[in-house]
Nucleic acid binder design. Structure first.
Lengths: 244, 244
DNA sequence: CTATGTAATATGTATTACAAGTTTTTGGAA
DNA sequence: TTCCAAAAACTTGTAATACATATTACATAG
C-alpha cells in the first residue's frame, strides 16, 4: 500500500458532496428540468445531514443556475439556459479585460465573421432579413454624434448576422464579443469624416448578398468590412498613442 | 412613477444581496485576487446579518469559483480562471447534447479551423511545433484497433494547433469542442481501410506548413482535412441509418 | 534553534426557533 | 352541489447557539 500515509481527511465539505450528488442526477437527466425536488426536510432525512449542510448545497446549485428555489413552494430543477453558461464566460472576460484581449478579439473577428456571413447567406430566414435590415435603417437614422448609440447599432448588425447563421455553437462562441463590445466601443468604431457612408455601404452590400443567398459575396464583403474596421481602429490607436 | 404599485417584496434573498455586493467588489478589483476577506464574524457585523445568511452568500460565490474557502484559515478572493468559466459552458453543452449540436460543431470546425491553422502558422513557437509533432508520432504509433485512443490523439492534434494560434479568445471558443469530442468520438472519426494513412499525410502536411510559417498552405490543408473528416462522418452516418 | 504542545481563531455541521410565502384543506354561504 | 374565503399545513428564509475540526501563532522544553 503506497498510500498508507495518504491524507485521511476528505477535502470536500458535506455540502459539496451533496451538491455533486444532485448535480450528477441532473446531468444524467434522472432529475428532468422542471421537476420538483423533495423538500429540504425530506432531503435532510435522505442524505442524513443537517438542514444547514443541505441548504448550503442547494444554495450552491442555485447560484450556478442548476436549481430554482421558490420560497414557500419548493425547489425545482432549473432549465439551464445559455445565459447561465455564458455569464460565467463574461465574468472571466470581464476580469481579464485588457488591451491584449481586444487585439485577440479583433483578430478572431477577422477570421470568423466572413465565414459566418457566408453561412448566414445560406441559412437566413425572412425574419433574419427583417432584423438585419432594421439595424441598417437604424444606423442611417442615427445621429452622427451619438457615438455610443451608433456603436450599439453596428454591434447589433453583426449579432443579427451571426443569429442568421442558424448555428448554435457559432452564436454562443461569438456572444461574448457582442456583449463585451459595448465596453470597448470607443476603441473599436472610430468616428471619422465619411466613415458613416462607407460603413452603411458595406452593411447594405452584405445585406443584399445575404438576401440573395450569395455566400461568396457576403463572405468577401464582410471580410472587407472587418478589415476596414480593424484598420480604422489601429489608426485611431496610433493617433491616440502619439497624442500622449 | 409607473412602478407605483410594483411589488414591495424584494424577490432577492438576503444571501443573494450579499453575494452581489461582494461580487461587485471583486469585479471592480476593489478586492484583488488572492486577498483575504474579513472573517465570517466580521462580515456578519459589517452587513448586519446572521451567520446563516452570510455563509450561504459565500457558498454561492464559492460554487461559482469567485471565492476560495479554507477551513480554519479564512476566505480568499479566487483567481478566477478559464476552467471555471468554461465548465459552465461544458455543463450547458452536456445537457443540450444531441445530433443537432454535433452538426453545428462540425459546421463550425469547417468554418474556423482552416483560419486557425493559418494563424498558427504565423504565431507558432518552437514548443508548439514539438507538441504538434508529438501528436503525429503518437498517431502513427497508435494501434489501428484502438479507436478511442486514436480519436483522442487526433483531438489533441487539433487542440495543439489551436493553442499555437496564440489567440486566447480563439482557444476558449474552441475548447468546448475539444472537451466534447471524447463523447462523440465514435461519431466523428470513422475507422475505414486506408483512412489512417490519409489522415497522417494530412497531419504531416499541415505540420510542415506551420513549421514553414506558410499560412496559406496550412489553411488549405486544414480545410481539406476537416472536409475529409466531415465527409467520412456523413458517410458513416448514412450507412448507420441504412443498417437499422 | 528546533520540535512539540497549547491556546486562539476560523470555518464546518447540527439543532432549535420563528418569520414569511405558498399550497392545501376546511367549512360555510349561495 | 358549487364557489369562495378563512384557516391550517407546509415550504423556504433568517437568526441564534453550540460544538466539531482545521489552521495559525505562540510559548516552552530540549
Amino acid at each position: 500500500m503506497s498510500d498508507l500515509f495518504s491524507p485521511i481527511k476528505d477535502s470536500q465539505t458535506l455540502s459539496q458532496k451533496i451538491e455533486r450528488k444532485i448535480e450528477q442526477a441532473i446531468r444524467e437527466k434522472k432529475l428532468p428540468a422542471g421537476s420538483k425536488l423533495p423538500t429540504e426536510h425530506e432531503l435532510c432525512k435522505m442524505f442524513a445531514v443537517s438542514r444547514t449542510a443541505l441548504r448550503e448545497a442547494l444554495r450552491r446549485l442555485n447560484a450556478r443556475g442548476l436549481v430554482d428555489i421558490r420560497k414557500g413552494s419548493g425547489m425545482y430543477v432549473a432549465d439551464y439556459n445559455v445565459d447561465d453558461a455564458i455569464s460565467s464566460l463574461l465574468l472571466y472576460y470581464d476580469l481579464k479585460f485588457d488591451k491584449n484581449l481586444i487585439l485577440h478579439i479583433n483578430q478572431a473577428r477577422l477570421m470568423f465573421e466572413p465565414e459566418i456571413a457566408k453561412l448566414a447567406a445560406q441559412n437566413r430566414t425572412e425574419k433574419n432579413l427583417i432584423d438585419i435590415k432594421k439595424t441598417i435603417t437604424d444606423l442611417i437614422a442615427c445621429n452622427l454624434d451619438h457615438i455610443q448609440a451608433e456603436a450599439d447599432i453596428i454591434n447589433r448588425f453583426h449579432a443579427k448576422i451571426t443569429e442568421a447563421s442558424g448555428n448554435s455553437f457559432v452564436m454562443i462562441s461569438m456572444e461574448p464579443i457582442f456583449s463585451l463590445i459595448p465596453r470597448m466601443r470607443n476603441f473599436i468604431y472610430a468616428n471619422v469624416d465619411g466613415e458613416r457612408d462607407i460603413r452603411v455601404a458595406y452593411h447594405q452590400k452584405i445585406y443584399d448578398a445575404i438576401q440573395a443567398q450569395d455566400g461568396e459575396t457576403a463572405r468577401n464583403a464582410m471580410k472587407e468590412l472587418v478589415e476596414h474596421t480593424n484598420e480604422t481602429y489601429i489608426n485611431k490607436l496610433q493617433k491616440y498613442n502619439l497624442e500622449r
